[in-house]
Computed example of a mutant assay.
Amino acid sequence: MKKIVFLLGLLTTSLFAQTTDSLFYEANDLYKNGAFEDAIKKYEAILEKDLVSAELYYNLGNSYYKLNKVGPTIYYYEKALKIDPTNADVKNNLIFAKRLALDNIEEVPKTVFQKINSNFLQKLTFNEWAVVSVVLSFVAVLLFFLFYFANATTKKRLFFTCSMLSFLALIFTLVITYQQYQFFNKNKEAIIFAEETVIRNAPTVNSEEVFTLHEGTKVMVLDALDNWKKIKIADGKLGWIISDELKIID
């Protein structure tokens, strides 16, 4: 009976994969033929199955770009880069897409730590840093056991030094993992989807208008209250926006 269930599971998985592949190829054909809206529907049908990939997001971005929809274009390119940060095609297309955005916001100069964080530490997600920490913990324990059971003084000194360095590296990576986790939870990137939206100084429709943003602008979401999101833009300005007018990059 178990074998039958297992075989049925494999058959279901196989049929599901074939259906998904079929949708993807159909969407690609529609894109090649200029039917971009129909292609988007096919790609989004795949998303509804919770099947995501850099290629899927990239193709969605390309489809929206052809329709001159700046917000969704940038949004899906950014999501593709979250999965595959080194993808040169996505990076190049994102540069062109950002030129369509109306807002030209000067970024606040970064501190040395912020540069290190964005250029190096954030190259890995907090989950990947956690994996590094686990590996280092095993290495540190192994080196300590080698030190403990070694007979020669030279080997003992070598294994002890290496184990201490591994423990220090472990502590360092644990700190980085925690910081990246905190940063991820407190600072979520999002893309403005509204063609034009007013940013207010409080989460109410009667509050003062502080500035205006347009479709495609990237913001940081810092807080949420009811149907409002508190955001920060690249030049450091803060304000509140209606939640429906942006989409968070997961």
Rank of each mutant, 00 (worst) to 15 (best):
A202F: 10
P203H: 04
Q18F: 07
T20E: 11
I83H: 07
T125G: 15
Q179F: 15
E44Y: 00
R200I: 13
F184A: 15
E196M: 10
Y57T: 02
I199T: 06
L158Y: 10
G34F: 01
E44P: 01
V139W: 03
D21S: 11
G239V: 13
S118D: 14
F184S: 12
N185W: 01
I231G: 12
E245S: 15
K232Y: 10
L23M: 08
A150P: 11
I191H: 08
D84P: 10
I241S: 06
S118M: 11
A17C: 10
G236I: 02
N185K: 09
S22I: 06
K218F: 01
I233N: 12
Y65E: 07
L67I: 00
F126H: 12
I249A: 08
A88V: 08
V134S: 02
P109H: 11
S243K: 14
V175F: 13
T204H: 12
N87E: 01
A54M: 12
L213A: 00
E106P: 05
N28I: 02
S166T: 05
L47G: 09
A101M: 10
L168K: 08
D250I: 14
F16K: 13
A88D: 09
A35C: 06
E195N: 03
N68K: 15
R157T: 06
R157N: 02
D250R: 15
S53G: 04
Y77K: 09
Q182M: 15
L143Y: 09
L213C: 09
A97S: 04
G34W: 01
G216V: 08
D244G: 08
P72L: 03
P203T: 05
T20G: 03
A27H: 03
K237R: 15
A88P: 09
L158Q: 03
Q18P: 09
L100K: 13
M1Y: 14
N151A: 03
L136H: 00
S22T: 11
L124R: 03
N117H: 05
I176Q: 12
T111N: 09
E209G: 08
G236R: 05
I40G: 07
V198G: 06
V5E: 14
L8K: 06
K98R: 07
F184M: 13
